[in-house]
Amino acid sequence: SLEELLKLARHALRHGEEIHVLDRVITDEHEIKRLIEELERLI
């Protein structure tokens, strides 16, 4: 769900981890922040 993805993204950002989204691995902090902003808009 989007909520789950948002939780994962926030966790990854906090802990400096990578996040796997739709067969992509996002490691860049700015990309993760952008993902979080997009998800928050959708929810």
Results as ranks from 00 to 15, higher is better:
residue 1 S to G: 10
residue 9 A to L: 15
residue 31 E to G: 08
residue 6 L to A: 02
residue 13 L to G: 03
residue 18 E to Y: 07
residue 12 A to M: 03
residue 40 E to P: 00
residue 36 I to C: 04
residue 7 K to T: 07
residue 20 H to G: 05
residue 7 K to L: 11
residue 37 E to Q: 13
residue 32 I to S: 01
residue 17 E to I: 14
residue 26 I to H: 04
residue 6 L to R: 02
residue 19 I to P: 01
residue 24 R to V: 09
residue 34 R to H: 12
residue 32 I to M: 07
residue 21 V to L: 15
residue 36 I to T: 02
residue 21 V to G: 04
residue 41 R to T: 09
residue 16 G to L: 06
residue 22 L to Y: 08
residue 34 R to T: 13
residue 37 E to S: 12
residue 15 H to Q: 09
residue 36 I to S: 00
residue 28 D to P: 02
residue 26 I to L: 11
residue 2 L to Q: 04
residue 10 R to T: 06
residue 15 H to N: 14
residue 1 S to A: 11
residue 32 I to N: 00
residue 9 A to P: 00
residue 28 D to Y: 05
residue 40 E to Q: 06
residue 15 H to M: 12
residue 41 R to I: 10
residue 6 L to E: 01
residue 35 L to E: 01
residue 1 S to M: 14
residue 1 S to H: 12
residue 43 I to T: 04
residue 20 H to R: 14
residue 28 D to H: 09
residue 41 R to C: 04
residue 15 H to F: 11
residue 38 E to P: 00
residue 12 A to V: 03
residue 1 S to L: 11
residue 30 H to W: 14
residue 7 K to N: 11
residue 26 I to A: 04
residue 10 R to V: 08
residue 17 E to L: 15
residue 5 L to E: 02
residue 8 L to Y: 07
residue 29 E to P: 15
residue 12 A to H: 03
residue 8 L to R: 14
residue 25 V to I: 14
residue 26 I to N: 01
residue 41 R to N: 08
residue 19 I to S: 01
residue 9 A to S: 03
residue 42 L to T: 07
residue 3 E to D: 09
residue 8 L to T: 09
residue 7 K to P: 00
residue 35 L to D: 00
residue 17 E to K: 13
residue 15 H to V: 11
residue 37 E to G: 10
residue 8 L to Q: 10
residue 43 I to K: 02
residue 10 R to H: 13
residue 36 I to N: 00
residue 37 E to R: 13
residue 36 I to L: 03
residue 33 K to D: 04
residue 28 D to N: 11
residue 19 I to F: 11
residue 6 L to M: 04
residue 3 E to Y: 06
residue 31 E to I: 07
residue 30 H to S: 12
residue 14 R to G: 11
residue 4 E to L: 12
residue 14 R to K: 15
residue 38 E to L: 14
residue 42 L to D: 03
residue 1 S to D: 13
residue 7 K to Q: 12
residue 35 L to S: 00
residue 14 R to P: 02
residue 36 I to F: 02
residue 39 L to P: 00
residue 19 I to T: 02
residue 32 I to T: 02
residue 9 A to C: 05
residue 24 R to S: 07
residue 2 L to N: 04
residue 39 L to C: 02
residue 20 H to T: 13
residue 10 R to G: 03
residue 5 L to G: 00
residue 25 V to W: 09
residue 42 L to E: 06
residue 2 L to D: 02
residue 37 E to T: 12
residue 15 H to G: 06
residue 27 T to H: 10
residue 19 I to D: 01
residue 5 L to K: 04
residue 37 E to N: 12
residue 35 L to A: 03
residue 20 H to S: 08
residue 3 E to C: 06
residue 6 L to S: 01
residue 25 V to A: 06
residue 10 R to K: 13
residue 7 K to D: 09
residue 18 E to K: 11
residue 8 L to S: 08
residue 1 S to T: 12
residue 6 L to P: 00
residue 26 I to G: 02
residue 18 E to P: 15
residue 11 H to A: 10
residue 24 R to M: 10
residue 14 R to Q: 15
residue 3 E to F: 05
residue 24 R to F: 08
residue 2 L to S: 03
residue 8 L to F: 05
residue 6 L to I: 07
residue 39 L to N: 00
residue 11 H to E: 15
residue 36 I to E: 00
residue 29 E to F: 13
residue 16 G to R: 09
residue 40 E to L: 07
residue 22 L to V: 10
residue 16 G to N: 10
residue 13 L to E: 06
residue 16 G to M: 07
residue 35 L to Y: 11
residue 29 E to M: 15
residue 21 V to E: 03
residue 5 L to N: 02
residue 33 K to P: 01
residue 36 I to Y: 01
residue 24 R to C: 03
residue 28 D to K: 11
residue 43 I to D: 01
residue 25 V to N: 06
residue 35 L to T: 02
residue 37 E to L: 13
residue 17 E to N: 11
residue 8 L to D: 10
residue 34 R to V: 11
residue 8 L to A: 11
residue 14 R to S: 15
residue 42 L to H: 05
residue 16 G to T: 04
residue 32 I to G: 01
residue 11 H to V: 06
residue 9 A to V: 09
residue 17 E to R: 10
residue 5 L to V: 05
residue 10 R to D: 12
residue 14 R to H: 15
residue 26 I to Q: 01
residue 27 T to K: 15
residue 35 L to I: 10
residue 2 L to H: 05
residue 21 V to T: 06
residue 38 E to N: 12
residue 40 E to S: 05
residue 16 G to E: 04
residue 37 E to K: 11
residue 6 L to W: 01
residue 27 T to I: 10
residue 16 G to W: 04
residue 30 H to C: 07
residue 3 E to A: 06
residue 2 L to Y: 11
residue 29 E to K: 15
residue 27 T to F: 10
residue 27 T to P: 02
residue 19 I to Q: 01
residue 33 K to E: 10
residue 39 L to S: 00
residue 23 D to S: 03
residue 3 E to H: 07
residue 11 H to G: 08
residue 9 A to W: 09
residue 37 E to M: 14
residue 22 L to D: 12
residue 26 I to C: 03
residue 43 I to H: 03
residue 21 V to S: 05
residue 25 V to C: 03
residue 12 A to D: 01
residue 23 D to F: 01
residue 12 A to Y: 01
residue 28 D to A: 11
residue 6 L to D: 00
residue 33 K to L: 14
residue 13 L to Y: 05
residue 26 I to W: 11
residue 31 E to F: 05
residue 15 H to W: 11
residue 29 E to Q: 13
residue 11 H to Q: 11
residue 37 E to P: 01
residue 28 D to S: 13
residue 21 V to I: 14
residue 3 E to M: 07
residue 20 H to K: 14
residue 21 V to K: 03
residue 41 R to W: 09
residue 4 E to K: 11
residue 19 I to A: 04
residue 20 H to Q: 12
residue 41 R to G: 07
residue 18 E to T: 14
residue 7 K to I: 11
residue 26 I to T: 03
residue 23 D to K: 02
residue 37 E to W: 12
residue 36 I to H: 00
residue 9 A to N: 00
residue 12 A to P: 00
residue 13 L to D: 04
residue 4 E to I: 11
residue 41 R to M: 10
residue 40 E to W: 04
residue 18 E to F: 08
residue 28 D to I: 06
residue 5 L to P: 00
residue 28 D to F: 06
residue 27 T to G: 09
residue 43 I to M: 06
residue 22 L to K: 15
residue 11 H to L: 05
residue 28 D to L: 10
residue 16 G to V: 03
residue 3 E to N: 07
residue 33 K to R: 14
residue 31 E to V: 08
residue 6 L to K: 01
residue 3 E to K: 07
residue 9 A to E: 00
residue 9 A to G: 02
residue 15 H to A: 10
residue 43 I to G: 02
residue 32 I to Q: 03
residue 41 R to Y: 10
residue 35 L to K: 01
residue 17 E to A: 09
residue 19 I to G: 01
residue 5 L to M: 11
residue 13 L to C: 03
residue 36 I to M: 04
residue 19 I to Y: 05
residue 4 E to W: 10
residue 38 E to A: 13
residue 13 L to A: 09
residue 22 L to P: 06
residue 33 K to N: 07
residue 5 L to D: 01
residue 7 K to E: 11
residue 12 A to N: 02
residue 21 V to F: 14
residue 31 E to Y: 05
residue 14 R to D: 15
residue 27 T to V: 12
residue 7 K to W: 07
residue 15 H to T: 15
residue 39 L to D: 00
residue 30 H to M: 13
residue 8 L to M: 11
residue 9 A to R: 00
residue 23 D to T: 03
residue 42 L to I: 10
residue 28 D to R: 07
residue 13 L to V: 09
residue 38 E to C: 06
residue 30 H to F: 12
residue 7 K to M: 10
residue 28 D to Q: 10
residue 38 E to K: 13
residue 8 L to I: 10
residue 8 L to N: 12
residue 11 H to W: 05
residue 41 R to L: 09
residue 30 H to Y: 13
residue 37 E to Y: 13
residue 35 L to R: 03
residue 22 L to N: 15
residue 6 L to N: 01
residue 38 E to H: 15
residue 24 R to L: 10
residue 39 L to T: 03
residue 22 L to C: 06
residue 16 G to S: 07
residue 15 H to P: 01
residue 11 H to C: 06
residue 11 H to F: 02
residue 28 D to E: 12
residue 29 E to R: 14
residue 4 E to T: 10
residue 5 L to S: 02
residue 25 V to L: 10
residue 31 E to T: 08
residue 29 E to S: 14
residue 34 R to A: 15
residue 15 H to E: 11
residue 29 E to V: 14
residue 30 H to I: 12
residue 28 D to W: 04
residue 10 R to A: 06
residue 10 R to F: 08
residue 3 E to P: 02
residue 21 V to C: 05
residue 5 L to Y: 06
residue 31 E to C: 04
residue 20 H to D: 05
residue 26 I to K: 01
residue 24 R to G: 06
residue 20 H to Y: 07
residue 3 E to T: 07
residue 3 E to Q: 07
residue 20 H to L: 10
residue 29 E to W: 12
residue 18 E to G: 14
residue 33 K to I: 14
residue 15 H to D: 08
residue 40 E to D: 05
residue 4 E to G: 07
residue 1 S to I: 12
residue 15 H to K: 09
residue 11 H to D: 14
residue 20 H to M: 12
residue 11 H to P: 00
residue 27 T to Q: 10
residue 27 T to W: 09
residue 14 R to Y: 14
residue 28 D to M: 09
residue 31 E to H: 06
residue 5 L to T: 04
residue 27 T to N: 11
residue 18 E to Q: 11
residue 38 E to I: 15
residue 24 R to P: 02
residue 9 A to F: 09
residue 26 I to Y: 15
residue 40 E to N: 04
residue 41 R to Q: 10
residue 22 L to H: 13
residue 25 V to P: 04
residue 34 R to S: 13
residue 41 R to V: 08
residue 23 D to C: 03
residue 37 E to H: 13
residue 36 I to P: 00
residue 5 L to W: 09
residue 19 I to K: 01
residue 42 L to K: 11
residue 32 I to E: 00
residue 25 V to Q: 06
residue 8 L to G: 06
residue 17 E to P: 02
residue 30 H to K: 13
residue 10 R to C: 05
residue 29 E to N: 10
residue 13 L to I: 12
residue 8 L to C: 03
residue 32 I to R: 01
residue 18 E to A: 14
residue 19 I to R: 01
residue 23 D to A: 04
residue 36 I to D: 00
residue 21 V to Q: 05
residue 42 L to Q: 10
residue 36 I to V: 07
residue 15 H to I: 07
residue 16 G to A: 07
residue 19 I to M: 13
residue 24 R to K: 11
residue 40 E to I: 09
residue 43 I to L: 11
residue 23 D to E: 08
residue 8 L to K: 15
